[in-house]
Simulated assay, not measured.
Amino acid sequence: MSKALAHAKIVPRRSSDRGHANHGWLDSFHTFSFSNYYDPKYQNFGSLRVLNEDRVDAGQGFPTHPHRDAEIFSYILSGELTHRDSMITKGAEGQQGDDFYRMKRGDVQFTTGGRGIAHSEQNEHDSEQVHFLQIWALPWARGLTPRYHTKTFSEEAKRAAFLPILSPLKAGPGASEAEEKVAEATLPDTIPIHADFVMAAGIIGVDKRFKWTVGGNAVKSTTGRHVYIHLPMTKKGSMKIRLDGREDAVLNEGDGAFISNVNAGDVLSVESIGEAEAEVVVLDSD
């Protein structure tokens, strides 16, 4: 197969090389330096700052804690995870909304930490473990107004093509308070993020191939993009993908890849070559 992106640099990040901490109730893998894991080579990739793959036991989780000046989002792979703003106590939640949401597979919960926000994330299921990705991006400005968004993304749509999940706030870095409140994303039906950043996900059938257009037709910064591809551990090792037709860019479950020297409009091929359909997450930043 001819290479579609001969100019691109693709560097795999193997699962076994990630930071790893098993606290009993929490089993966590860190692609970038986080908490007690530090590696100066893995601080960020463009505006992508954190990519943790977490499993949390039933009845466990992260009690109320603060965040500032980060765009933080959770992508649920299996089980359930309850997000609750610090002002909402257990038993007084009411209906699901952005301040309180019991997330399941397909849900994405997004937080703008801005000038300060506090929430908890708990697995309140009585028996099932929750498996999810927690991802942080660096915002284009500090001191933003804190905000939550929660949205469900279709499994069927992810099986058709890469489905955009996050795209930049349409009003950009100079957004007014009114534009912040409207929270319109550049791409329809996505969650707005305060960064020149696009997230997408796809579920690629065996021997099928999806294509990702760098920048997702949504970004301002068009040159020198940073695309990170992640293959979460969901099929007990039976997933495998190949990037850009390259035999040295084959990823197994838990692996990722840094793709640099690419520009908006370049097209990346992602091919499923394992024994099970492959769930692939794309994180495309400036």
Rank of each mutant, 00 (worst) to 15 (best):
H194D: 04
F210C: 00
E180A: 03
V270R: 07
Y228C: 06
A183I: 08
D207S: 07
H194N: 03
S269C: 05
V267E: 15
S176T: 15
I191E: 04
I203Y: 06
A249S: 14
S176L: 07
P164Q: 09
V250P: 00
L243Q: 05
V270D: 03
P164F: 05
G172T: 08
L231N: 12
V219I: 12
A175G: 09
T213S: 11
I165Q: 13
L231W: 03
V267S: 15
V206S: 05
A161R: 15
W212S: 10
A183G: 08
H149A: 01
V262C: 05
S260A: 14
S176D: 06
S221W: 01
A171C: 00
A175R: 07
I203Q: 11
R147I: 02
D207Y: 03
K220E: 12
N217R: 12
A161M: 02
V262F: 04
F153Q: 02
D207A: 07
K240M: 14
G237W: 11
A200T: 02
S176N: 14
A183Y: 14
I165V: 15
A200E: 05
P192L: 10
V219Q: 15
F258E: 12
E247Y: 05
K211I: 01
S167A: 14
A201E: 10
M199S: 15
S269H: 04
L268S: 04
D207W: 00
H149Q: 05
A183M: 09
T186G: 04
A201R: 14
A183C: 09
D266G: 12
A200P: 03
G202P: 02
N263Q: 12
K208A: 03
F162P: 01
S221H: 11
A175W: 06
K181E: 15
D248R: 01
V182R: 12
R246C: 05
G224P: 01
K170N: 13
T234W: 01
S221N: 14
M199Y: 13
R246L: 05
K208I: 00
P168F: 09
G202Y: 01
L163S: 09
V219Y: 06
R225C: 11
R159C: 10
T190V: 12
V219P: 00
E180M: 07
A200Q: 02
I203A: 09
F210T: 01
T152C: 06
S154E: 14
L243A: 06
M199H: 15
E247W: 09
V198L: 13
A200H: 03
N217L: 08
E184R: 02
T186I: 11
F197H: 14
E155W: 03
A249W: 04
F153P: 00
G172S: 06
K236S: 15
D248V: 12
E156M: 10
H230M: 04
G216R: 06
K208F: 01
H194A: 08
K208L: 04
S154W: 08
E253N: 03
G256C: 12
K208R: 13
K181I: 09
R242F: 11
A200D: 02
Y148E: 00
K151Q: 15
A183Q: 09
P188D: 15
L268N: 07
K220G: 12
G202I: 07
N217A: 12
Y228T: 08
I165G: 10
D196Y: 11
N252T: 06
G216P: 02
R242G: 02
S238M: 10
H194I: 05
G216H: 07
G265V: 03
F153I: 08
I165E: 14
S154M: 11
E247R: 11
K181V: 02
